[in-house]
């Protein structure tokens, strides 16, 4: 099941003939390129090469995404880490059983962006390590789509890729878009609304999947340094010029947890909404 995605665009008759289809093609192309499930995606090609001693030469877009991941890793003191996807394998939310500390420790040896050899445009992964662009490509896709629409003369619209939002411009009458922020207690209901006439809005939540063991709640956002789910925050929403930036900041804030996350985010001086866990 994928995330529900919607495009709200005000188009001229001429734009309507071409822009929507081309916009969808543009997003599907990105998904195909970075999906872990497509065996011919660049993600799969890089991951398959892990431990082979061979490096993979990547295209300029992928290189820019890897550079971005490197910067986010450094700025978050190692919390934003695109190699942390392997933790999903040991945390089985359906089982209701915690992985052993030994298993976690073993998995942690396969995590760490600093272990990757990245010399633009060549990347080389140690054995069994994996990259996952999933943590930020959807946000990047929202920005890409917005850029594409703007290049084609679209000036009013909102792009919603499963909750990662990028506003191109206000409604036709100049009114801002109202974007609901989910109540972690009741995600079908909006807890608050933010208004936007342009820019990105992204939310990172720890409530979508979790398990309760011995009265303790374990969410699906993992700290790549400890291998344990982060604690303290239920959801972080950030508004920034680009959806990618909003998404990265909300993710890092969520990973920093409480205390620390909220303070770090306030320093950015961007509009945000943090919902703490009780």
């Amino acid at each position: 099941m994928g995330s529900p995605c919607k495009l709200h665009l005000y188009l001229t008759q001429k734009q309507a003939n071409t822009v929507p289809q081309a916009a969808l093609d543009c997003v599907f192309a990105l998904e195909k390129k970075y999906s872990r499930y497509q065996s011919d995606s660049i993600t799969s090609i890089i991951n398959r090469s892990a431990g082979s001693g061979q490096c993979v030469r990547v295209d300029s877009e992928t290189a820019a995404l890897l550079d971005y991941a490197n910067d986010a890793f450094e700025q978050s003191d190692g919390l934003f880490d695109i190699t942390s996807g392997v933790l999903r394998k040991i945390w089985d939310f359906k089982s209701g059983i915690l992985p052993s500390q030994e298993t976690i420790n073993q998995t942690l040896t396969l995590i760490g962006w600093q272990k990757i050899r990245w010399h633009n445009p060549y990347i080389e992964l140690p054995e069994d390590m994996e990259l996952d662009f999933g943590g930020y490509v959807k946000e990047y896709a929202a920005d890409t789509l917005a850029t594409f629409c703007m290049d084609n003369g679209v000036t009013h619209g909102l792009i919603d890729l499963g909750g990662d939002i990028r506003v191109i411009g206000p409604h036709l009458d100049g009114k801002p878009w109202k974007i609901g922020i989910r109540n972690p207690d009741n995600p079908e209901k909006a807890l608050a609304h933010v208004e936007s006439t342009g820019g990105g809005v992204a939310t990172s939540g720890n409530y979508e999947r979790c398990m309760v063991v011995d009265g303790h709640r374990y969410g699906h956002v993992f700290n790549p340094l400890t291998g344990w789910p982060v604690q303290g925050l239920a959801s972080v929403t950030v508004q920034a010029e680009h959806c990618l930036i909003a998404g990265t900041l909300s993710t890092i804030t969520m990973l920093k947890g409480r205390p620390g996350g909220g303070e770090w985010l306030q320093d950015m001086g961007l509009p945000n909404l943090i919902i703490e866990e009780p």
Partner: peptide, 15 residues
């Protein structure tokens, strides 16, 4: 930190 990320984001072709 924000400046670094924004600068980095601007070298992405979609941005």
């Amino acid at each position: 930190a924000l400046l670094t990320l924004v600068t980095s984001a601007f070298s992405l072709p979609g941005i």
